[in-house]
Design a protein around this nucleic acid. Structure first.
Length: 480
RNA sequence: GCUCCCAUCGUCUAGCCCGGUCUAGGACAUCGCCUUUUCACGGCGGUAACAGGGGUUCGAAUCCCCUUGGGAGUACCA
């Protein structure tokens, strides 16, 4: 039997970091084992669901390189449709069967009655389980009659009075004691089914073999276990992955800042880096690697390397992972990405040789693709760098003004667009031999004259990348 | 409140299932050193953890119990 896994988001907002991680785990498992990855849309909460979010989430998934084999846009006739809002008849049909078998019943209680019941139970120290009259068999005929007349009623599942044990792939044996949940609603009075119910119907009908999802569903699983039992359906394997938490150790949510994938996408993080980092939160590589790509994961991903405790989302490490992926990327790919960045007009106009050399030099300093245009602007194109304290210090040395006027004259003489490394060496040699300056005053002086900075990348690579026109302006600026 | 889950460096984690090889390994961050005629890059190294208490055992990070702490769920949300 082939493995079938699913990611089932609710289109109530942007794709969340945590959702992306869950989707990734499902996707990786399917790929690693030769299974099928299904995307199902859980839009039964009509008030909060929006079609636009479905599109946006699928788009973010695509960006991350998490591609589904089946879904609303790629239906397999055997399992379609993939939106819960389009599966109402199916849920209704099964609900009817459950009622016929007395495994569920209609409930006409109003919200107020329910709340009163709950308050009373709490006051008496009992679990707030449903104790309305409609669960009694003698009211079944009346209920059926009222429904036939068109009266609205919720459908409630008759919870089994027994304990359950789940053998979870991450948590091990989880025991749900008897009476943990009371009779719960599976279909709302407006006719729409509820998550814990349609989730089971769909997983059953879609032949889902492994349910990989967040730990926030762990307690709910007992309800689902009951429905599986009532339906006589085969249980899938469950893997409840630990939650992602923020710096306050609370479940990661909007108030923790950037938690939606599109934000990182907008900031031009590399999708491979996002996947790499997300995968690392709660899962470990068998060889203890920190940096890897999907091709590697397809070979080694398995469900037995999850950690059971929550993982704190740490932007610092994400940034580092992104930097590692930037460094790993082929130069030609990197150039292509840099050219898509805003403010890279100058970069685009340069020769292939210049670009290669530039990327080769700046990669060490860049953690993001967006850093390249910034570094080019700062290190190569800036004509009037600020007079910083360390720079003032260098200017105060008695040798520096002499170096500056020498360099100034040389730069004025230069006729080509760029200075070559050989030319730069000649200048350095001159300062060294004719002016008798060496060591720190030599290098720092030349650096100050040509870059207007006290630090930065190696001069012999940096200066040949800098237009002579810029060099001229810098020396002028420094002298003035 | 009740129920469930969890507990190794500041953070992500390896080790735990199958006790000894763990004076607990790696990574991020942090600090220091080296190299570099400058500045970097880089290299090397340091600080830093088995929540606490009981058992079991010749021996426990690893098995059991309790305490504490954290998280989640407890909806006609998903």
């Amino acid at each position: 039997m082939t493995v079938r896994v699913r990611f089932a988001p609710s289109p109530t907002g942007y794709l969340h970091i945590g959702g992306a991680r869950t989707a990734l785990y499902n996707y990786l498992y399917a790929k690693a084992i030769g299974g099928t990855f299904i995307l199902r849309i859980e839009d039964t909460d009509l008030e909060r669901s929006q079609a636009e979010y479905e599109r946006l989430q699928i788009d973010d998934l695509k960006w991350l390189g998490i591609h589904h084999d089946e879904g609303p846009d790629k239906p397999n006739p055997k399992y379609a449709p993939y939106r819960q809002s389009e599966r109402s008849e199916i849920y209704q049909k099964y609900a009817q069967t459950l009622i016929e078998k007395d495994l569920a019943y209609y409930d006409f209680c109003t919200e107020e009655e329910l709340e009163a019941m709950k308050a009373k139970a709490e006051a008496e120290g009992r679990d707030p389980h449903y104790e309305g009259k409609w669960k009694e068999p003698q009211f079944k005929a009346e209920a059926l009659e009222r429904v036939k007349k068109g009266e609205k009623a919720a459908i409630r599942f008759r919870a089994y009075k027994k304990s359950y044990t789940l053998n979870d792939k991450v948590k091990g044996h989880v025991t749900y004691p008897e009476g943990m949940v009371g009779d719960f609603v599976i279909v709302r009075s407006n006719g729409l089914p509820v998550y814990n119910y349609c989730c089971v119907i769909d997983d059953m009908l879609m032949d889902i073999t492994h349910v990989i999802r967040g730990e926030d569903h762990l307690n709910n699983t007992v309800r689902q276990l009951m429905i599986y039992e009532a339906l006589g359906a085969k249980l899938p394997e469950f893997a409840h992955v630990s939650l992602l938490i923020g710096h306050d150790r609370q479940k990661l949510s909007k108030r923790h800042g950037a938690t939606s994938v599109n934000l990182y996408r907008n900031e031009h993080y590399l999708p491979e880096a996002m996947c790499n980092y997300l995968c690392l939160l709660g899962w470990s590589h068998p060889e203890e690697k920190d940096i890897f790509d999907k091709t590697d994961l397809f070979k080694v991903f398995s469900l037995d390397r999850f950690s059971a405790h929550a993982a704190m989302y740490d932007l610092e490490k994400l940034k580092w992972v992104n930097g590692e992926h930037v460094k790993k990327m082929p130069v030609s790919d990197l150039i292509e990405l840099i050219e898509k960045e805003p403010e890279s007009e100058f970069f685009k106009k340069q020769s292939a040789e210049w670009k290669n050399s530039c990327v080769g030099l700046l990669t060490k300093y860049a953690q993001f693709v967006t850093d390249f245009p910034k570094l080019v602007n700062e290190l190569i194109l800036k004509e009037k760098p600020e007079m910083t304290e360390p720079l003032k210090e260098i200017m105060s040395w008695e040798t520096t003004p002499k170096i500056v006027s020498f360099i100034s004259a040389e730069v004025e003489k230069a006729s080509s667009e760029f200075v070559t490394e050989a030319e730069l060496n000649t200048w350095m040699d001159h300062v060294k031999k004719e002016m008798g300056v060496k060591g720190k005053p030599l290098f720092q002086g030349v650096r100050a004259a040509l870059t207007g900075h006290d630090h930065g990348p190696d001069l012999k690579f940096l200066i040949p990348l800098t237009p002579v026109t810029v060099l001229k302006k810098r020396v002028e600026h420094l002298k003035g």
